[in-house]
Amino acid sequence: MILHHVQTSALNDNALAVCLRFCAPQDSIVLSSDAVIALLDQQWLNKLKPFNIMALADDVAARGLTEKHLAASSIAINLISMNEFVAQSLTHQKVITW
Protein backbone atom coordinates (compact mmCIF):
# COMPACT_ATOMS: atom_id res chain seq x y z
CA MET A 1 0.00 0.00 0.00
CA ILE A 2 1.69 3.13 -1.29
CA LEU A 3 1.07 6.80 -0.61
CA HIS A 4 1.70 8.58 -3.91
CA HIS A 5 2.69 12.23 -3.47
CA VAL A 6 2.18 14.58 -6.42
CA GLN A 7 3.29 18.20 -6.15
CA THR A 8 3.02 19.61 -9.66
CA SER A 9 0.12 20.62 -11.87
CA ALA A 10 -0.98 17.90 -14.28
CA LEU A 11 -1.22 20.59 -16.95
CA ASN A 12 2.52 21.30 -16.72
CA ASP A 13 4.15 18.08 -15.75
CA ASN A 14 3.73 14.35 -16.29
CA ALA A 15 3.98 13.47 -12.57
CA LEU A 16 0.27 12.79 -12.05
CA ALA A 17 -0.11 10.93 -15.35
CA VAL A 18 2.85 8.64 -14.59
CA CYS A 19 1.67 8.15 -11.01
CA LEU A 20 -1.78 7.05 -12.23
CA ARG A 21 -0.23 4.67 -14.78
CA PHE A 22 1.44 2.72 -11.97
CA CYS A 23 -1.01 3.22 -9.11
CA ALA A 24 -2.42 0.02 -7.57
CA PRO A 25 -6.11 -0.15 -6.53
CA GLN A 26 -5.29 -0.17 -2.81
CA ASP A 27 -2.92 2.84 -3.05
CA SER A 28 -3.67 6.43 -2.03
CA ILE A 29 -2.73 9.70 -3.70
CA VAL A 30 -2.00 12.94 -1.87
CA LEU A 31 -2.08 16.09 -3.98
CA SER A 32 -0.05 19.04 -2.76
CA SER A 33 0.99 22.44 -4.12
CA ASP A 34 -0.16 22.97 -7.75
CA ALA A 35 -1.23 19.34 -8.03
CA VAL A 36 -4.52 20.26 -6.29
CA ILE A 37 -5.63 21.98 -9.52
CA ALA A 38 -6.44 18.52 -10.94
CA LEU A 39 -9.45 18.56 -8.59
CA LEU A 40 -11.08 21.18 -10.84
CA ASP A 41 -10.57 19.25 -14.06
CA GLN A 42 -13.19 16.63 -14.92
CA GLN A 43 -10.79 14.63 -17.09
CA TRP A 44 -8.34 14.20 -14.24
CA LEU A 45 -11.10 13.61 -11.71
CA ASN A 46 -12.35 10.65 -13.74
CA LYS A 47 -8.88 9.15 -13.58
CA LEU A 48 -8.51 9.86 -9.86
CA LYS A 49 -11.92 8.44 -8.98
CA PRO A 50 -10.89 4.79 -8.37
CA PHE A 51 -8.32 5.77 -5.73
CA ASN A 52 -8.31 7.13 -2.20
CA ILE A 53 -7.65 10.83 -2.85
CA MET A 54 -6.30 13.33 -0.35
CA ALA A 55 -5.28 16.94 -0.83
CA LEU A 56 -3.41 19.25 1.50
CA ALA A 57 -6.05 21.61 2.92
CA ASP A 58 -3.61 24.55 3.06
CA ASP A 59 -2.82 24.23 -0.64
CA VAL A 60 -6.49 24.13 -1.53
CA ALA A 61 -7.27 27.16 0.65
CA ALA A 62 -4.17 29.05 -0.50
CA ARG A 63 -5.50 28.97 -4.06
CA GLY A 64 -8.92 30.28 -3.10
CA LEU A 65 -10.56 26.92 -3.69
CA THR A 66 -13.46 26.16 -1.39
CA GLU A 67 -15.92 23.37 -0.66
CA LYS A 68 -18.07 24.91 -3.37
CA HIS A 69 -15.42 24.40 -6.06
CA LEU A 70 -14.67 20.90 -4.90
CA ALA A 71 -18.35 19.92 -4.60
CA ALA A 72 -18.49 19.77 -8.39
CA SER A 73 -15.77 17.13 -8.37
CA SER A 74 -18.24 14.36 -7.51
CA ILE A 75 -15.50 12.29 -5.87
CA ALA A 76 -14.67 12.01 -2.20
CA ILE A 77 -11.63 14.13 -1.41
CA ASN A 78 -10.13 14.15 2.05
CA LEU A 79 -8.63 17.53 2.84
CA ILE A 80 -5.77 16.85 5.21
CA SER A 81 -3.33 18.85 7.33
CA MET A 82 0.45 18.42 7.28
CA ASN A 83 0.14 16.44 10.54
CA GLU A 84 -2.25 14.05 8.83
CA PHE A 85 0.13 13.78 5.86
CA VAL A 86 2.82 12.58 8.29
CA ALA A 87 0.38 10.11 9.86
CA GLN A 88 -0.66 8.82 6.43
CA SER A 89 3.03 8.41 5.51
CA LEU A 90 3.27 5.91 8.36
CA THR A 91 0.01 4.04 7.77
CA HIS A 92 1.14 3.41 4.19
CA GLN A 93 4.18 1.22 3.52
CA LYS A 94 6.08 3.91 1.67
CA VAL A 95 5.74 7.32 0.09
CA ILE A 96 6.59 7.88 -3.58
CA THR A 97 7.04 11.50 -4.59
CA TRP A 98 6.48 11.78 -8.33
Binding site: I2, A15, V18, R21, F22, A24, K94, T97, W98
Partner: peptide, 17 residues
Protein backbone atom coordinates in the same frame (compact mmCIF):
# COMPACT_ATOMS: atom_id res chain seq x y z
CA UNK B 1 3.85 -3.59 -18.92
CA UNK B 2 2.28 -1.12 -16.49
CA UNK B 3 1.26 -4.09 -14.33
CA UNK B 4 4.84 -5.32 -14.05
CA UNK B 5 6.09 -1.85 -13.11
CA UNK B 6 3.26 -1.43 -10.58
CA UNK B 7 4.38 -4.69 -8.94
CA UNK B 8 8.01 -3.50 -8.85
CA UNK B 9 6.95 -0.32 -7.06
CA UNK B 10 4.98 -2.36 -4.52
CA UNK B 11 7.91 -4.70 -3.86
CA UNK B 12 10.62 -2.06 -3.45
CA UNK B 13 11.54 -0.76 -0.01
CA UNK B 14 11.87 2.77 -1.40
CA UNK B 15 11.16 4.39 -4.74
CA UNK B 16 12.90 7.56 -5.94
CA UNK B 17 11.63 9.40 -8.99
Amino acid sequence: SSTVITEQLQQADEVLV
